[in-house]
Amino acid sequence: MLNIIKSDLYRIFRGKSLYIVTAIIIFMAVISAITLSPGHIGVAVGTGSTMTDPDTVAKIAEAKTLGEFRDVMKEIGTIKLDAQIIGQNSNLYYFFIVFVVVIITSDFSNKSVKNTLSSAISRREYYFSKLITVIGMGTVLVLFNDFINYVLNYVINGKEFASEIGYITKISLIQIPVVWTLICMLVCIAFFVRKTSVFNTISIPLLMILQVIAVILFAILRETPKWYTDFELQYALSNLANEPSNSYIIKCFVLSTVYIVAFVTAGYCAFKNAEVK
């Protein structure tokens, strides 16, 4: 197993995708820090935004340049920017897709998987090695993102806008089970469809579909149900970044474990007896 992981890491470090992803992360962190707004590449979801006070909103609307905006924000006072950014980590989903494509589905679409499966590597070893590689890379990416944001925020915006490092570490770590759930879901889909094109078609819009479901639920029920805002994956990520209670943390952990086991098993069963075209 270690050998397969090592070989995939060799391939990743030789390619361009890893470095592009890292560059984008750093770039987004810089932008977020300078413009004092969380949000990454997707839609800002969930709680954590403190822009509700009408005075504040008015003042912000008046600010014409970035510099003025920053001054206004600094006057308003402390918002834990880095925590908010970490709350938006569900947008890292798109980077997870990149990893799954590079590590898993490209092997199938290229047909190079037959080279591996015809040697002394069982399907089980193959599945779990790829799973662990993607999970590892995803986890490193998320932690890197969290700390880069912390550091840049601290440097650019000063101590008032930063949380303590202990707090940042804590929320980084408690987000990990949910991150893993997302990744396992993607890996499961990847091993089900075994083609890059189909995988992309399903996974890229998936997150947006979940958000559309939120809209539909809101339209039908006139409010987004609590179970959705508590436990839908994107909401969960941002909740966990916002001073969550211990019971909530435990609930998320349990739910994540269930999801992970389900996705991993489903993916393995799909792959175990599949034809390798």
């Binding site: 397969i4 090592k6 060799y10 391939r11 047909k111 190079s112 037959k114 080279n115 002394a120």
Partner: peptide, 19 residues
Amino acid sequence: AFFEGMTAYQNLKYYAIQK
């Protein structure tokens, strides 16, 4: 079937590590 973006040597090295 091999990886398009890698050279011949790198492709073989990938599998050498794997095996």
